[in-house]
């Protein structure tokens, strides 16, 4: 391997580790605040976790069909989402007027928008089969979540507590993963 090439790979690894560390820090900040532990401790644990994950990904990249730069872009969007979510939680705890609270409530939407766009760009950069796999996985995720939410509503009428947004997101992730595994198996 040429020296130039090796140097560029080294830079790529460093950038990935820095990006995952930043995302981990943002995650730790949000959770540190949410669980009322020290913010610094939350950030420190998050950064350490991020470094470990970044190091692992750089050394043994997962079978991703898109470049690391795309992965870093998703991490950047996730960081923005986590920071806006932290800002939302923090600002809502301050004594704001009702109008200000509405503006603050819209803050994480910016993060979500950026995150969805970064995922969309990553999917668009895939080749045709990979794109089909992702699209089918998303369709399965969407259908599964709709059935889950609809089914949950029936149980709600029977006395179950209100559906939690976190639970819906978790269901979406699980169904997407199941969809991805299914389509990967189909085109294996």
């Amino acid at each position: 391997m040429k020296i130039e090439e090796r140097r560029s790979l080294g830079n790529d690894e460093t950038k990935t580790i820095i990006m995952t560390a930043v995302t981990g820090g943002a995650f730790g900040l949000l959770y540190g605040y949410g669980f009322e532990i020290s913010l610094w401790l939350g950030v420190l644990i998050g950064v350490l976790f991020g470094i470990a994950i970044g190091f692992r990904i750089s050394k043994r990249p997962p079978r991703m069909e898109y470049p690391m730069a795309m992965f870093r872009r998703i991490m950047l969007a996730a960081t923005f989402l986590l920071l806006t979510s932290f800002g939302y939680s923090y600002l809502l705890d301050q004594n704001l007027s009702q109008t200000q609270q509405y503006w603050v409530a819209a803050l994480p939407l910016l993060g979500w928008l950026l995150f969805v766009v970064s995922i969309g760009l990553a999917i668009a950069s895939l080749d045709e089969l990979q794109r089909r796999i992702q699209t089918e996985a998303i369709a399965i995720g969407f259908a599964g979540t709709a059935i889950f939410v609809g089914g949950y509503a029936l149980f709600q009428f029977a006395g179950l507590s209100d559906v939690n947004v976190g639970l819906v997101l978790l269901a979406m992730s699980v169904f997407w993963l199941a969809g991805k595994l299914w389509t990967l198996w189909r085109y294996r």
Binding site: E65, D127, E128, L129, Q130, R132, Y187
Partner: peptide, 22 residues
């Protein structure tokens, strides 16, 4: 061809029909 190895494998095994441009 600028595609993934998985795509070539899926075409070879007849599990996936490529697009016209490919």
């Amino acid at each position: 061809l600028g595609v993934s190895r998985q795509t070539i494998n899926a075409i070879e095994t007849g599990k996936y029909d490529p697009s016209l441009p490919l």
